[in-house]
């Protein structure tokens, strides 16, 4: 019970962080928080059966995503774009 509530609380903290921050790195940090909360949820739900191995798949994707995010950040930071709202090419 407590892990479930904790995962929801952490999830909402992560969503809050994604939506309210303008720094790209901080947003990536918030995404990691979200994914962590999800893994916690899955772990607590799988407690009875003892099959925790599904979480490895999520970790794999999460690590790749963080790698790609950091690579993109490095590319953007070269032209001094650290604010996410500067990325406005995809608009009407």
């Amino acid at each position: 019970m407590i892990p479930l509530i904790a995962s929801m609380v952490l999830f909402s903290i992560g969503i809050y962080g994604v939506l309210s921050k303008r720094d790209i790195l901080r947003i990536t940090i918030s995404v990691s928080v979200i994914l962590g909360s999800i893994t916690l949820l899955l772990a607590s739900l799988a407690q009875n059966s003892g099959n925790y191995s599904f979480i490895l798949f999520i970790w794999a994707v999460e690590v790749m995503e963080i790698l790609v995010a950091l690579a993109v950040f490095l590319y953007l930071a070269r032209s001094e774009k650290k604010d996410i709202n500067d990325l406005q090419q995809l608009r009407w």
């Binding site: 969503i15 994604v18 303008r22 990325l87 608009r91």
Partner: peptide
């Protein structure tokens, strides 16, 4: 509706959520 396509990724994320 066009005003929703602001180009700010934050808005897009908000819409996503």
């Amino acid at each position: 509706l066009r005003r929703f396509i602001s180009g700010h990724p934050t808005n897009y994320l908000f819409a996503f959520v």
